[in-house]
Design a protein around this nucleic acid. Structure first.
Lengths: 231, 231
DNA sequence: CCAAAAGTGTTGGAAATACACCCATGC
DNA sequence: GCATGGGTGTATTTCCAACACTTTTGG
């Protein structure tokens, strides 16, 4: 009879595996939801594009590895990021067995280090016009999008894709881009003003219209009072 | 200047890490949602309890590793199982660095191999009366419960915890156990009969009441017609 | 005959949806 | 003065929650 598992934990003899993190870096620009990808200049799958990845080293928390990879590519710190899924088919990477854990990051396109990104041959693509991706990276994008859609409906995470001050038309376009559907302007604003964590400032942004739209900011305190969010 | 990541993929030199899967095996028994745990008979954390785990070997899909671990402990095949989360703090296992990917399984308690389970010193515990667990396993339970609650509200996965034929009172008790709250009988049944994928059989189960309750079965075909579920 | 669980509809309130016009401004 | 996008309220429908009595039958 076999021994219980936990007694089998002859740790040192257990096979070890290469573990990677792949980051789905989302940005919002001129009404488009975009994803940051790097060009793959070598075989196999040369000239396809790939998510930004890196390997996890032994004394590093998995989450920290994802933050490191993000920082190395964009120079950004303090970014909203969450784990999406672990992809572990034995043959998902034809070169060697690699388990990849994906993370979804919402970054402010205006903040990242453009130099750095260019030096990595990285490029932003609108989410609905992605190039061919390597391996199972399209599946990763799908999984991250499903989660992002759910998240923005149930929590105040979308604001991470907008600057501190933003207008309601901007916010609505962001939601439309993420959810992939038109939203009724009046109903959208009604919901937002019901949960009252948006503060209207005495400033207008005239860059996108003649009339100008009021700027708002998200008030974390007020949100924490009720912790309710539903779009 | 650093080279782009993907060009750094000197795979062979990358540090490798022990990867485990831990299974949250849920069962439903006499109105209680239960979790199958194994007793840990050795240090560190001797006499605490732990999820059922095992290590991923190199030519094995991550999902397959989880199925293997489940099968080895319970003898069950064809079980509903889904990945929950990858736990990767560098020091989560004090003995060695192990990344653990958790999977949530919904099993039919009447089907599993009792002999096998006992031989592993495994035991079922009601979800609201768990013993002390090792490492970060309580966090794993929390994560799996959150997901299970969401899943049973939005999809027909709860039926995996009941036999082929079941009564509505049983189903309701299952939902109450998972969601941790009382449910109104009439509203519950109204929702179920609105989505009409439950077939009432001409049999009653009299084991739990004098009057007896009609047996139902879940009709997958009918569910697939509309693919709508909401409790 | 009575205790215990199964079964069954209606109503009121809340939330979601649909929908159309005026306003301010730059050109 | 007109084209462009910003801003606002109401009526309808749909969904959800609350709620109480009758039925069956084993003991």
């Amino acid at each position: 009879m076999q021994k219980p598992f936990q007694i089998n934990r002859a740790y040192k003899e257990v096979q070890q595996i290469t573990v990677a993190v792949d980051c789905l870096i989302f940005g919002f620009n001129q009404g488009n939801l975009e994803l940051l990808l790097v060009h793959r200049g070598f075989e196999p799958e040369r000239d396809k594009w790939s998510l930004i990845g890196g390997f996890v080293v032994n004394d590093e928390d998995l989450d920290d590895a994802a933050y490191r990879v993000l920082r190395e590519l964009t120079g950004l710190e303090d970014v909203y990021m969450e784990q999406v899924h672990a992809f572990g088919k034995a043959d998902r990477d034809p070169y060697e067995r690699v388990i990849s854990v994906t993370y979804s990051a919402l970054v402010l396109k205006e903040n990242y280090d453009d130099e750095l990104v260019r030096s990595y041959k990285a490029q932003w693509f609108p989410i609905d016009a992605l190039p061919q991706l390597i391996f199972d990276h399209e599946e990763m994008v799908e999984a991250a999008m499903r989660r992002l859609r759910r998240r923005v409906k149930t929590g105040p995470v979308g604001f991470n894709l907008l600057p501190e001050k933003f207008t309601l038309p901007q916010l609505q376009r962001l939601y439309e881009a993420i959810l992939g559907e038109k939203i009724d302007k009046r109903n959208f604003r009604k919901k937002l003003s019901a949960m009252n964590f948006l503060i209207r400032l005495d400033e207008k942004d005239k860059s996108e219209s003649k009339k100008g739209a009021f700027l708002y900011r998200f008030d974390e305190e007020k949100y924490n009072d009720v912790k309710h969010f539903s779009i």
